[in-house]
Amino acid sequence: MNIFRLCGDMSHLAAIIILLLKMWKTRSVAGISGKSQILFATVFTARYLDLFTSFISIYNTCMKVFFIGTVYFTIYLIYMKFKATYDSNHDSFRVEFLIVPVGGLAFLVNHEFAPLEIIWTFSIYLESVAILPQLFMISKTGEAETITSHYLFALGSYRALYLCNWIYRYYAEGFFDLIAVVAGVVQTILYCDFFYLYITKVMKGKKISLPA
């Protein structure tokens, strides 16, 4: 564990808590993409299959349980409890255009052609594009609530911090995982234009409003 990875995990944790607070306080899921949350649930389920078979640390297990629990709770809030406020017309990204290529790529490019390894690789590739339905929805509605902007900033920062973690681990431990790094770079790049909007607007107290 190193400071970059710890900050990354805390940023990820903060993003999920911000999202839950937004939904619970406003009792609304307006502006939130249910499809992205379904993709995140798929990512966590595929990546944490070893939750019960390999114990790494209390921290690791607690975070995995928290991430899986909260993402499914989020889906429950979007599609059941606050269903009336879910904006399905704008949440229209075709996720099959993500899942099929990512699934195929995981079969072709992986560290080891073994079931668990391919599923882990699938979760890494899927996570890098899982935010697309959410960003697509914001571009369609043309705006994002400030709290949703904070959620996306924390979520984007988490993988950017993981990139720093991988740089540190490369020099400190000689650890290097090309698949995780390439997917992490793609994932972080997808947030770049949002980061620009966030820093130039939200930091100055304005709302994000994209040219629709």
Binding site: R5, H12, S54, M63, H111, W120, F175
Partner: peptide, 10 residues
């Protein structure tokens, strides 16, 4: 480096 401790990250 063994494969499984590659997966010590979240």
């Amino acid at each position: 480096v063994e494969l499984d401790d590659l997966k010590d990250e979240l």
